[in-house]
Simulated scan of single mutants.
Amino acid sequence: MTVRTPFGLILLLWGAGLGAAAQYGKVSVIFDLLPGAYPDAGAAVGWIVSLVGFVGILFGVVAGLVVARIRYRRALLWALWMGAAVSALQAALPPLPVMLLLRVAEGASHLAIVVAAPTLIAQLSAPRDRGLTLTLWGTFFGVAFAVLAFAGRPLALSFGLPALFLAHGLYMALSALILTNRLRALPEEGAQPDFSVPQVVKDHGRIYRSPHLVAPAAGWLFYTFSFVSILTVLPPYLDPGLRAPVMTAMPLLSILVSMTLGVLLLRRLSGVQVVMAGFALSALCMVWLWLMPGAPLACLALAGALGLIQGASFAAVPQLNQTAATQAQANGTMAQMGNLGNTLGTPMMAFALAQAGYAALPVLAGAAFVAGFAVHLLLGALRRRT
């Protein structure tokens, strides 16, 4: 569709993704401060963090279907304005039930952004640049969390929780204003089926039976299951003197490898091939960590291998799905599986560690990486057959 890639506009769409990631991260980085705002909430305060993820699990595919029907530019701008309004309301620190309802609304906003923005990036990018632009998109979570840890938490500590929510709301509103003027609607692709509960159920079945639509999400499930859980449970097993630098370097190295080696590989290999290479190398790193528990170089090698999976998974979406509508469906399925992996990974890893000790970490994570490789192998065979 596009001969020349509008890199300035791509960066703006990536910036919108940073705002979407901050819908998670702004609460995560101040989680220990929330009991001060809600002293009687007890364990229920955890729902302030997790509700956005549960919305993604339940409605990820639905978001892909809805965004394709209401169009990508409209969905993205609506989601940004909604996100800005929700953050402004959160700044008032309303009663807990109201805050939880606002987090549900924020989950809907988040889903629309993470479906519409990468679909727009894929459609606006020249084919030769999609590996670069979608790999850039794949960094949005890591970059946003790093920024929030560096600047967002200090802002909340210095000026209170409302300041962080207001800053996020202003960022979302500014993104919406800029993109309103810069972003044009994609050409229509023809009428979409009527939106109804039976049609949504039918579409779910169609998507999950398609080896083209489901492939990026299938691998993404095992990546998200492992990545967050490893970063969460690994620190106690590292040398205390090296713990902080290794844990700081791991997500940064993952992004660096994704944007350098990952982009170079995507010029020669398909996204699925790069993802499979990342899973294979990650599994080997878990063997290394099994033989040498907590080895810093093994941790860094693992982070680099995971970086290959990160960007190439998004690059695989337009390679396997040619139209904007099918790309939106694939991105919605990725959102659903990503939220499921994030939600299940840490509790399952923590339970396994409690039962079996350190050995559970390389075994469980290694099994997830092997499963990610195997599911891509299977789906590739199904695509060749059809």
Rank of each mutant, 00 (worst) to 15 (best):
A352K: 05
L9C: 00
M276R: 04
R128I: 14
A43F: 10
V263N: 02
L166F: 08
R128T: 03
Q322N: 11
I113D: 00
G357S: 10
D32Y: 00
A191I: 13
A303F: 04
M172V: 03
L361H: 06
A352F: 09
F351D: 15
L134M: 11
L80E: 02
V375R: 02
L124T: 07
L33S: 12
G357T: 07
V214C: 09
Q319S: 06
A63H: 04
A92V: 13
A277Y: 05
V55W: 04
R184H: 05
T139C: 14
Q310L: 14
T326A: 13
V86F: 03
P187K: 02
Q355K: 15
A146Q: 06
G64E: 01
A359M: 14
A75G: 07
P347G: 03
A149L: 13
W47T: 08
L264E: 11
Q327C: 08
A280P: 08
Q310M: 11
L256F: 07
P154G: 11
A108E: 06
G338N: 12
A144P: 01
L124D: 00
A112H: 03
P293C: 14
I121W: 02
T346Y: 11
V49P: 06
V375N: 05
F195T: 13
V370I: 11
G64L: 07
D32M: 13
W14L: 07
A303P: 00
V29P: 02
L183N: 06
L379E: 07
L266F: 08
V197P: 09
L265N: 00
V114F: 09
A312I: 03
L124Q: 09
S270D: 04
V263K: 00
P245T: 07
A280K: 06
T386N: 06
A218H: 07
A176D: 07
Q90E: 09
S109D: 02
L111V: 05
P162I: 11
Q310K: 08
R71E: 05
L111A: 10
N331W: 09
A359F: 07
V114K: 05
W220N: 14
V228L: 15
